[in-house]
Design a protein around this nucleic acid. Structure first.
Lengths: 354, 354
DNA sequence: CCATAAAATGCAATCGATTGCGCACAAATC
DNA sequence: GATTTGTGCGCAATCGATTGCATTTTATGG
């Protein structure tokens, strides 16, 4: 089968008895082509269903209109939502989005960068893998003058544009909210990873406490990988060690839901005995009982911001002299797990269905 | 700066005083090139950090090593998981994955198909949008001999390879499970949409009932768009109309969680008074209270199956004479919402964290 | 009616890699 | 020593579109 009915500008040219050059110019609305010819070309093009070969255009122009995205994994609500935002914007501008996953693996991240470079993408958008310390692979991207944007998990020791949320502020607000609800032994679940977002969330927690005359009790700061099971364990740890606490602010929704399960199992009343707050506004946080207070990372807006910043860079064609940093305001979402006073009622629901 | 340090085979050729043809052949391990020359070429290639320009290769060979995916939306766990599976397999084989979203919009789906065709992808993977009835846009893909694979939301009136789960069997099993738990007024939430998956799920429900000597009571079949709010409304509908029911099997997790919330609000005991089961194994179903019985759509396996099938097709180079249909076994996940007898304990937990 | 500017189009190179064909030289065969 | 077979590599076309630089055609003016 496969009727190679590839129609090219030469087909159009032949049918009109003109040259491919003229056809090309006509299609690109070149001023030096007569209106009559343009009309004819357009007409024939439509007739034979001509579609420009983007590969040929890419080769000739040195621009593929492809943009590469690297995320740790695509099947995580936050990342896929950002990807969604980027894709929608890119799509409008005639760009295609190639997605790849690093799986939080440094080697794979490096490989992927090169694979994208080989594919001649016009630019790259990245959220760093957890294991990434060295950044040489990005330096080579920058040297080549290829637009590069980091989001969420970024590195600061490299001059690159980035989009993040205000993790500090959000953490501060949530902690403050817990304090206002009368909790005063607020534990914090965090990651030992040397990643900006976790450091900022801790800082927000710390500053909020101090603003209210409290201070961080090291015994209340529990480090783990912040997965679901880690949350269970961390909660158990606090209980078993007999460390008094009446609230937990976790840097991740996964570990806070683990804690919720564990605490309920031990007969704690949420939010009566213990208030809980997570981070991320993962869809499931709306459906636990009680609903989990958390922070919405405005993922789709982030995707749009990333795309906007990215295309701004693209316009500058490598003449990048400054590195922009866009900080989006994250939205605290207060749900039942932290509200024992009945104040501050705000609701956010998540949708979409099968 | 953008130092146009594009190294090409010509650079290698020049440095060795040979031709680009020879370099090309050497790099491709052509038998007619001497071992010595190959060595030299490889050496110089490494030295000047030569990377083949995949755009040029694509133009010359007529193969882009790009594969296009169209899903309704990428930020849905099921779809992003399938994408994940596809990307991983594609990546191993040196293919890149372009993702696009139809947003369940027919026009957009058509546009996207053309956009992908314009981008010269080597093949396309699709899960149909809800609004799609006409399939002409796919026929043109098939005519061009471009590999096409449908997954999950498929159409049967077109000869195309597809990967689906056994919706019928899974629905049958879940319904049977509810019956075994002693429920005998089992409602069904479904979609009026003319989509294969919903028809199959209904059929499984119906046949299970009949196998146990019951029959479908039209009053218990509630149609809606199956979103969260629809689930609430449907539950309210049953309650307010005074239609007796003691279980609900929903074709979507979103509407069953809505029903769960509504029922709890009305004081029903789950699973004591009413048993609940959904479909999809969305991450949140593990975290509701009680956990929701549902069906795991084995999304990552589906992605891998899609990729495998896809690359099989690719090998056949358009000489596609048969259309394969791969049916994966979905996995019922029995959780608290449907287990009042304490039997049949199976657990599945979901992971990943920020 | 011719010169000349202006408008419209053609020629040919280019982007980077691949490949059929052919040429030169070496080894093998008779 | 002449012919055949083979080896190693170069030439040039090709993929499809773009573009600087002619060249042709048309319009304008004298």
């Amino acid at each position: 089968m496969s009727k190679k009915e590839k129609t090219t500008i030469h087909d159009i040219a032949q049918q009109l008895g003109i040259t491919a050059s003229t056809v090309s110019r006509a299609l690109n609305n070149h001023p030096r082509i007569s209106a009559k010819t343009k009309e004819l070309v357009l007409k024939v093009a439509k007739e034979i269903n001509y579609k420009p070969n983007s590969i040929a255009v890419a080769l000739r122009n040195g621009k593929s209109r492809l943009i590469g995205i690297i995320v740790p994994t695509v099947n995580r609500d936050f990342f896929s939502s950002v990807v969604r935002g980027i894709e929608e914007t890119a799509n409008k501008l005639g760009y295609k989005v190639i997605i790849t996953q690093s799986h939080d693996n440094y080697e794979r991240e490096v490989q992927t960068i090169h694979a994208l470079l080989d594919a001649r993408v016009d630019g790259i958008v990245v959220s760093l893998g957890k294991g990434t310390q060295k950044l040489d692979h990005f330096k080579s991207v920058i040297q080549k003058g290829i637009p590069l944007v980091f989001f969420d998990r970024v590195a600061n020791n490299i001059p690159v544009c980035q989009v993040v949320i205000d993790d500090y502020l959000a953490a501060y607000q949530v902690t403050e909210h817990l304090i206002e609800q009368g909790y005063n032994r607020i534990a914090h679940f965090n990651s030992p990873m040397n990643i900006n977002i976790f450091k900022e969330r801790f800082r927000g927690y710390k500053d909020a406490l101090e603003s209210y005359g409290m201070s961080v009790d090291p015994a209340l700061v529990v480090e783990s990988n912040l997965q679901l099971e880690d949350g269970r364990q961390s909660a158990r740890h606090l209980i078993e060690k007999g460390i008094p606490f009446d609230a937990i602010f976790s840097a991740s929704d996964y570990s806070i839901v683990g804690a919720l399960q564990e605490l309920k199992k031990h007969g704690y009343n949420i939010p009566g005995d213990v208030g809980l707050a997570g981070f991320g506004n993962e869809p499931f946080t709306a459906f636990t009982d009680p609903g989990l207070t958390t922070v919405d990372q405005v993922s789709i807006a982030m995707g749009q911001a990333v795309a906007k910043l990215f295309f701004d860079l693209l316009d500058k064609e490598g003449r990048i002299t400054e590195t922009q940093k866009i900080v989006l305001r994250a939205k605290p979402v207060f749900r039942g797990s932290s509200q024992r006073l009945g104040i501050n009622t705000a609701a956010i629901s998540s949708e979409t269905a099968n």
